[in-house]
Design a protein around this nucleic acid. Structure first.
Length: 308
DNA sequence: ATAGGTCAAGCGAGG
DNA sequence: CCTCGCTTGACCTAT
């Protein structure tokens, strides 16, 4: 069982704040549209080179600190949708490829599991063709980066998304998910997973199982915290085990765990779905071997105390 | 150097 | 109709 954290390393991102005498390390350097238009691809490439170099540092930091599970940021290549069609034309692409390849080799050598979680704008269930097209683009970019790293084309290195829409008709929305799945490149299809939602009106594990897994066979990521708000009539154990059953035998399933911010901060005004800074405990895995992605605002600091 | 306003994309919930 | 939150705050300008 591995514990992981997502996208940001607090100590490395804010070294001063945590009393470290070193420069900032982050894979989240980005820019607004206007800057992208003004400064162009050369400047973009500079940010990307720093981001991928820092990914290497983060992997090494993770190894040094006993962490073997990490979700990569989706912001490593700012505005990638504007240039992903032909990576070979991107400035310094040889350096970037080499660095990503090194990152992948390092992770593989250390036995680290690297995953990604493309954002809420990825809506495979959308009735709007433009939205679906943008989704295909964003997922393809994520998969390309994983390919550059030499990561497996399996859900071991998962690309995880939510359905992200209902439109008053789940049945047809789920239909569209399965139909649009066929339009994705193999680099995406082979890694894609889907996660249960934190709203009762959206998708429970059971609904994802019936509507997606049964038809296209992609694994379900079980989120403990979300399940509390959308049980689909299943207990935690039932939902967990149903999700686990969708994973290939030779790949350890991933689950997400977080705790309520309103409880942690003793503030009832905070919406119950919000994530806490830290966690008090680990989830009950009911004896199953899973990798646990801990979604806490303070990132790696939340799991430090649980790493053996 | 820091603070405050601003910032690609989609959706649903809450005010 | 507007804002928030989500995966994840980070960027940019004025002071």
């Amino acid at each position: 069982m591995n514990l992981g954290y997502a996208c940001i390393n607090m100590k490395l991102s804010y070294p001063k704040k945590y009393g470290l005498d070193q420069h900032r390390i982050t894979m989240n350097r980005s820019m607004i549209r206007r800057t992208f238009d003004e400064k162009g691809l050369d400047y973009t490439s500079e940010l990307v080179m720093k981001n991928v170099a820092d990914l290497h540092s983060i992997i090494q930091w993770n190894e040094d600190n006993g962490i073997k599970f990490f979700r990569m940021s989706s912001e490593t290549f700012p505005w990638a949708s504007e240039y992903y069609q032909d990576w070979t034309k991107f400035p310094n692409i040889r350096f970037i490829h080499a660095m990503l390849s090194d990152c992948g080799q390092l992770a593989t050598q250390y036995g680290h599991r690297l995953t990604a979680h493309p954002g809420p704008f990825n809506v495979l269930v959308s009735p709007n063709e433009d939205v679906v097209q943008n989704t295909i683009t964003d997922l393809t970019i994520h998969a390309d980066i994983m390919d550059f790293m030499g990561l497996s084309r399996t859900p071991y290195n998962k690309l995880n998304i939510h359905c992200n829409g209902v439109y008053g008709d789940k049945e047809s929305a789920l239909d569209r998910f399965c139909k649009n799945f066929e339009r994705l490149p193999m680099s995406v299809q082979s890694r894609l997973t889907v996660e249960n939602d934190d709203k009762a009106t959206m998708y429970s594990v059971k609904e994802l199982y019936d509507g997606i897994y049964k038809r296209i066979g992609i694994p379900i990521v079980f989120d403990y915290h979300h399940h509390r708000f959308c049980t689909g009539g299943l207990s935690e154990q039932e939902a967990l085990e149903l999700a686990i059953s969708t994973w290939p035998d030779d790949i350890v399933p991933v689950v997400h765990y977080s705790e309520s911010r309103s409880k942690e901060q003793l503030d009832e005004k905070i919406r119950p779905q919000a994530h806490s800074d830290l966690i008090k405990q680990l989830p009950n895995t009911y004896g199953h071997n899973v990798d646990i992605m801990v979604e806490a605002k303070h990132k790696e600091l939340a799991i430090e105390g649980f790493i053996k």
